[in-house]
Amino acid sequence: MTDEDDGELMLRYARGDLRAFETLYGRHRSSLYRYLTRHTRDPEMANDLFQEVWSKVVASRSRYEPRAKFGTYLYRIAHNCFIDHCRRASSRSDRAKVSAEDFDLENALHAPAADLPDARAEHAQTLARYRAALASLPNEQRDTFLLYEESGLTLEEIGKVTGVSMETAKSRLRYALTKLRNAMETPRQSAVTHVAALEEPGA
């Protein structure tokens, strides 16, 4: 299925074809949910925003015109919903500023390392670091990174969704990647240093 097919599905749904909407929903539900979950870092809030986004898609079906990709249309709605959510609950934004250590601790509480094999424990730790690094990014950079990762939009389309130029979106993405790499490498380096320190006394 191509993006043009997404637009056609949306038009069919606007004409009353529920099957078309189910197909469209099944195609975008996972990526949109991941985008919202990583963006908000709050599953409940992600659920609310996910439902709100699809409700807006349903409500605006008669005004939809397939002038651009359906993904651009869908993620623009999601982006605006997230912005509105940030404005409505500014107090919750403080909660979003959790540190990487808190994020790791939270994940450690949910997944006891003693019950996991070593590989799975390592993966879990890596994932926790990734989430923590993602959470430490500024909203604009995280938004751009997640849009590129999850929606599959181009930089130009991301610029349209976020209301900036393509160069700005590209710059944000570059900063986001650099910060993520630094955040992911630091624990590994500290672990290596820790292992070397451990090996030295025994040597």
């Binding site: 539900r29 949910y33 993966h123 994932l127």
Partner: peptide
């Protein structure tokens, strides 16, 4: 790989 591992699905 990280994105694949951070697999999340709507309930």
């Amino acid at each position: 790989r990280l994105s694949e591992r951070d697999h999340a699905e709507p309930p």
